[in-house]
Design a protein around this nucleic acid. Structure first.
Lengths: 142, 142
DNA sequence: CAAAATGGTTACCTCCATGTAACTTAAGCA
DNA sequence: TGCTTAAGTTACATGGAGGTAACCATTTTG
């Protein structure tokens, strides 16, 4: 029983759908942007008002927070509820769809946490082998 | 038995590690960049030489392909094997670590594929509610 | 009276990710 | 002679992501 390409995931064959797939790229962009994941995770803990969310998302500006929230809301991951008090009260939270994204995100983050050491090792190995040909300046390691 | 915050993932409590965590951000950047996931997926199918990898990664330039590969190699996700033939022969493939990332990535891509419809619906709903306040020009939907 | 707080919007600036195109080396081929 | 190939590197240009700061309305607090 010769099976040279043994333990690859069977999922893999489906993944190349990604090439022509605009929406997948857009969601990956969202996952990759500077604030979305952090916002989603914070709202995953509990629903929050704008300012409180900002406080918990260390250093995000009002502009970026609104922008990020608008994107997430547009994609149906986050809901927004404004109460016309004075001053205005606005609450944000995850929709069902947003919550369903927590699992895949957690997989990713857990992968990083589980492989932090190996990544760091790979990097310092690579760096000492390539001291000359510098790669876009990473600050050493870990 | 009152448990107001019922069905949240327990993982969530671990996730905020992400805030101070440079390396997580770096890996998310990689996931979010334009080519890394595509390259990883292609190499997930089989190891490939440079040109063949380029052909399968529709439209990537030599410059971006080398750059992306160098980053992935540095992080220990991809190996590179150069054979000093003439012209030079170089083969790329996933390391064990790289292969172990396929699963989390597949989760994400599958999430997108499974929720494509709902996302599209959310977007058109949002857009018709906010025809005025335009969000960074998305091209309609799906 | 002035400052703070809430939830934004708008204008402006900068840096980096990405794209394009030319150049390289050594051999094979017509 | 000169074109092609493989696997890059280098220089240059650009769009957009992201940061900073000012401004808005209204009410409460000092």
């Amino acid at each position: 029983m010769d099976h040279t390409m043994s333990h690859r995931l069977e999922d893999i064959r489906q993944l190349p759908m990604l090439e022509d797939c605009t929406i997948t790229r857009q969601i990956l962009d969202r996952v990759g942007d500077k604030w979305s994941v952090l916002i989603i995770v914070n709202l995953g803990v509990e629903s929050l008002r704008f300012k409180e969310l900002q406080r918990r998302s260390g250093g995000i500006s009002q502009r970026m927070l609104t922008q990020t929230l608008r994107h997430l809301e547009r994609d149906g991951l986050v809901w927004r509820k404004a109460t016309p008090t004075v001053p205005l009260t606005v609450e944000y939270g995850l929709t069902k769809l947003g919550e369903s994204l927590l699992q895949p995100l957690a997989s990713l983050v857990e992968w990083v946490n589980g492989n932090r050491g190996e990544i760091a090792k790979a990097r310092s190995g690579y760096d000492s082998d390539h001291q000359d040909t510098e790669l876009a300046g990473y600050p050493a390691v870990e």
